[in-house]
Amino acid sequence: MTRRALTGRILAPLLLAVGLAVLSLPEVAGFVVRALGLQAGTPVPAGRLAWLARHHLALALAGFALAGGAGLALGILATRAAGASLRATLDTLAAAAQAAPPVVVVALALPVLGFGAPPILLALAAYGLMPVMRGTVGALATVPEEVRRAATALGLTPAQRLWRVELPLAAGPILEALRVVLVLAVATTAVGALAGAQTLGTPIVVGLQTQNTLALIQGAAAAAALAFLADAVWLGVMRVVGRVVGGRA
């Protein structure tokens, strides 16, 4: 992607995030609900919404760190000579992990782990691990064999080769896989509300149960705004990293 196209890619989610955040404010959402001709229930105050958003983000980032860290480590391991046998089972495991959607993982974990944050953290880790791992393996596989051999011939140790040659060359696709998983984590965290975690899904679930359309719209807009914001921020990070890595080459 050219730098200019990437700027365009950042702008769209950023504008959507700002628009949806404005929509989630009690006054704006109340106006929309009345304009739709619906009964407006009790609004969620802006302060409470901001508190929920902070909680939501903290949970999503914790899940992302779990999935991203473990996925990167396993992906790197699978491409080293010692872990080569791991690769054959990756696809099977990836399919199996996709078969249990996050809602189902949260539900199954509830009786074992109890109410609160642990079920959604488990679901985020389980669901995000495979995309990161596969993305890392795929990205490292794009580094040409000649480059690898040249690095060894220059006298680099395997660790130096990984850090100074392979990872910088594979940074683009790895960051792209991490972006998908980050956005997935921020979006999926809303489901944690079903197991009693305090997230932006909470006003949605409560709104559905009590038929409070106002809280429902506020929660939905705020949750979507946060997901678009995460998308825009990560695209910005990718742009900066692209400049650093590109500048070095």
């Binding site: 739709l36 619906l38 809303a190 932006l200 429902l216 929660g219 939905a220 949750a223």
Partner: peptide
Amino acid sequence: QVVPALALFAALVAGLSGLLAL
């Protein structure tokens, strides 16, 4: 794809009730 599924389902409930009221 970026929109949380829970949020989209909720938005559809709200949007459909508005549409059906109109």
